[in-house]
């Protein structure tokens, strides 16, 4: 289960990064803007989907509490977390 979650997270992150780079660095520089004023077009939607995937993906990919936070709590409480 943990491996599946991690794989899904990795896939989401990679896809998110690709969509994000495509929109905000390729489309933006070639067209001078992302989207058209006053309209809903595909480019900004693709970019924001990439943005949302980047937000959620790494949390699933690397989803455990960082070691230094664990150590701080263990040192203060004296119990294993």
């Amino acid at each position: 289960m943990a491996e599946l979650k991690s794989l899904l997270g990795a896939a989401m992150t990679i896809l998110g990064v690709l969509l994000f780079i495509y929109t905000f660095f390729y489309v933006a520089t070639t067209k001078g803007a992302v989207g058209v004023k006053g309209q809903v077009t595909a480019d900004p939607i693709i970019g924001t989907v990439g943005f949302l995937l980047i937000l959620a993906g790494p949390a699933l990919w690397f989803g455990e509490v960082p070691v230094n936070i664990k150590k701080l709590v263990e040192a203060k409480t004296g119990r294993k977390v």
Binding site: F24, A33, V34, G35, G38, V40, T41, P44, T48
Partner: peptide, 11 residues
Amino acid sequence: LSYPTYLTYEA
């Protein structure tokens, strides 16, 4: 500053 992102308010 050079690359605005346009979407409607509802979007």
